[in-house]
Computed example of a mutant assay.
Amino acid sequence: MATHLITGAGSGIGAVLALRLLERGDDVVVLARDAGRAKQIVQDLPGASVVVADLSQPGRLSWALSKQNLPDRIDSLVHVAGVVDLGDVADLPASLWEQQLAVNLVAPAELTRLLLPVLRVSQGHVVFVNSGAGLRANAGWSAYAASKHGLRALADALRAEEAEHCVRVTSIFPGRTATPMQERVHHQEGADYDADRFMTPESVATTILTALDLPRDAQITDLSVRPGVH
């Protein structure tokens, strides 16, 4: 039985992944942004533990975690949480750049730093659920894509740095997935949302589980997954 800490488990990919891990008997710790969200997650994911910390304030993560009980062993840290606000460079204010960089890049870096001591002991696994935008930036996606390109760089550097501690690092690059975030993106794009056109969160969760369950003699470093052809 392994212990996993997951961000972004309140909905979408993270929620499905947490449920799948709980169903197979693993321990799951979920990070929630506030007490209200934590209460809802406990109801939705019976058996999961919750810690409260706001990823939009990376500089306060250390303080927040120090006030709560974390497991002595963590086998995987899975970064799923993210925010997106679209807009052309000419129109996007600094506040939206700062928010997306904080949640999508700086917070994963800081949370990883804080948990590395226990991950080293367990020879654990860090999984960054990135995005197709982490490989290519399209018009209107500058801030989000910049945060995801940075997340890829973070993963690559971390993998090289932690190899001596046998910590595995994986980047998953999902294409469009039928999640509440995708519905929000379509609203921002002014497009109709049809969930049937996209991958399900279950499919992406299966991809993450494949990386987590790979035997110790190998690791998936980078994996892109796209919607099937209909």
Rank of each mutant, 00 (worst) to 15 (best):
V129W: 00
L114P: 00
D44R: 09
D222R: 05
E110C: 07
L45E: 10
H186A: 06
R37M: 11
E189C: 09
S203C: 12
D213W: 02
I74L: 13
K67E: 14
L135N: 14
G59N: 13
P174S: 11
M1C: 08
R37E: 13
R168E: 03
L61Y: 03
E110M: 09
P215S: 11
L119W: 00
V121Y: 06
A107L: 02
I6V: 13
V80N: 03
L92H: 07
V129F: 06
R226T: 15
T112H: 03
L209R: 11
R20D: 15
L61G: 03
V42T: 14
P117W: 04
A178E: 03
H79N: 13
D192C: 06
G134Y: 00
L77M: 08
F128P: 00
V42E: 15
A178P: 00
W141T: 10
M1K: 10
P93G: 13
I41E: 07
H165G: 10
G12L: 05
A90G: 08
A102W: 10
H230V: 13
N104V: 05
F198Q: 05
S142Y: 05
E189G: 09
S76A: 14
L154V: 11
G150S: 13
R24E: 15
T170A: 04
N69Q: 14
V121W: 09
I13A: 10
T7R: 00
G134A: 06
G82N: 04
Q68T: 08
A32S: 09
S66G: 05
R24Q: 15
D54F: 06
L111T: 04
T3M: 03
V80Y: 00
T179V: 01
D26R: 08
I172V: 15
D72Y: 01
W97N: 11
G124P: 01
D72E: 15
L105F: 01
S49Y: 05
L116W: 05
W63P: 04
G150A: 08
W97A: 10
P93W: 11
D91V: 04
M181W: 02
V16G: 06
S49W: 07
A2V: 11
P215Q: 09
G82V: 00
T170V: 05
P227G: 08
V126Q: 03
L101K: 09
A191R: 14
V84N: 08
T206D: 15
L17A: 11
L158F: 03
P93F: 08
A32T: 02
D217C: 09
A107Q: 06
G175I: 02
V52M: 06
A137P: 01
D192P: 02
A153D: 12
A35E: 15
S147M: 07
G124W: 00
W141S: 13
V169N: 01
Q188L: 08
R120F: 02
L154E: 09
